[in-house]
């Protein structure tokens, strides 16, 4: 096979073989999806262009390769006498302008093309949320002391009542603080199970029972690109203000995220965040420390 056809074959193999056939199947297999998962058209065309640039660079990177590549073309274009070769020449030469005309026609004829959307994933959060801290991650000493006192009472009850699970009383403030945060986390996860689970799923993977009904799919909190990459007050903003709180670059009209500050108290929303991060198995991004 000469160089020209090798290049053509390479292009076809990657563009059609890999992108169209192999890639959608590998993606489907990788995420266990019911559908084939081709790369979006925009990404595909970007990859193709970059590959064409690379191929052009390769051919043009030495005089020898340029000659190798062009020789078969010049050969083909030579005046031909044999009928078969002449016929072939005519067919190919006619096909090129025809294809060009057809492509132009195809691109410009009115078509049902879905409007593509550019969506900004993490728009700027409003200043009013900036610098907020989840108060439940660091309970005050009074809160911890109160909690330890409650636990003591519970433990006494549990000692008398056999049905109850044994209650551990934290020995000191530090243990108490940890126990209190984990109690709040559990309450938060329960709030999550009631309020967020229908869309985001009990596994925090964005596939709750309602998810199939939306066009814009609920966020998968296990994806490192979602709640793990943002600071907690950002998540608090998203929970509090919901889809309608997004700027228009983030297509608020497609988001089914409720405005939770209408229905849940501030404390409940922070609690839900504790539970949500816990269920997703990730932590919020830490604010960079000022030196």
């Amino acid at each position: 096979m000469n160089f020209f056809w090798k290049i053509v074959l390479f292009f076809v193999a990657i563009r059609y073989g890999f992108f169209e056939v192999v890639f959608p199947r590998v993606s489907q297999w990788a995420v266990n999806s019911p559908d084939l998962l081709p790369a979006p058209a925009a990404a595909m065309s970007m990859y193709t262009w970059l590959m064409m640039v690379a191929i052009a660079i390769y051919i043009l990177s030495s005089e020898e390769r340029i000659a190798d590549f062009m020789t078969p073309i010049h050969q083909f274009l030579k005046p031909q006498t044999a009928a078969a070769k002449k016929g072939m020449q005519i067919v190919v030469l006619a096909a090129i302008p025809l294809f060009g005309g057809w492509s132009y026609f195809d691109v410009n004829s009115p078509k049902m093309v879905s409007p593509t959307a550019v969506r900004i994933q993490h728009p700027t959060m409003p200043g009013s949320f900036e610098g907020m801290k989840n108060p439940l991650r660091d309970p005050t000493e009074e809160q911890v002391e109160e909690f330890i006192a409650e636990q003591k009472e519970l433990a006494e009850e549990a000692a008398e009542d056999e049905e109850m699970e044994p209650v551990t009383v934290p020995n000191n403030i530090e243990d108490g603080r940890i126990a209190l945060v984990s109690k709040w986390t559990e309450e938060g996860a329960a709030l999550y199970a009631v309020n967020c689970r229908p869309c985001h799923g009990m596994q925090a993977d964005g596939v709750g029972p309602m998810a199939v009904g939306w066009r814009l799919q609920p966020a998968n909190f296990r994806d490192p690109g979602t709640i793990a990459t943002i600071v907690e007050e950002y998540a608090f903003w998203r929970v509090s203000k919901g889809g309608p709180g997004l700027p228009s670059a983030s297509t608020p009209w497609d988001s089914a995220m409720p405005i939770w500050d209408l229905d849940l108290s501030e404390n409940e929303r922070w609690k839900i965040l504790l539970g949500e991060y816990f269920l997703a198995g990730v932590g919020p991004r830490q604010t960079e420390k000022l030196e």
């Binding site: 309602m210 405005i259 209408l262 229905d263």
Partner: peptide, 14 residues
Amino acid sequence: IPLAGQVIAKPRWQ
């Protein structure tokens, strides 16, 4: 067209 329960605002229904 798929439909979901109205879970966006009170009264939410799943």
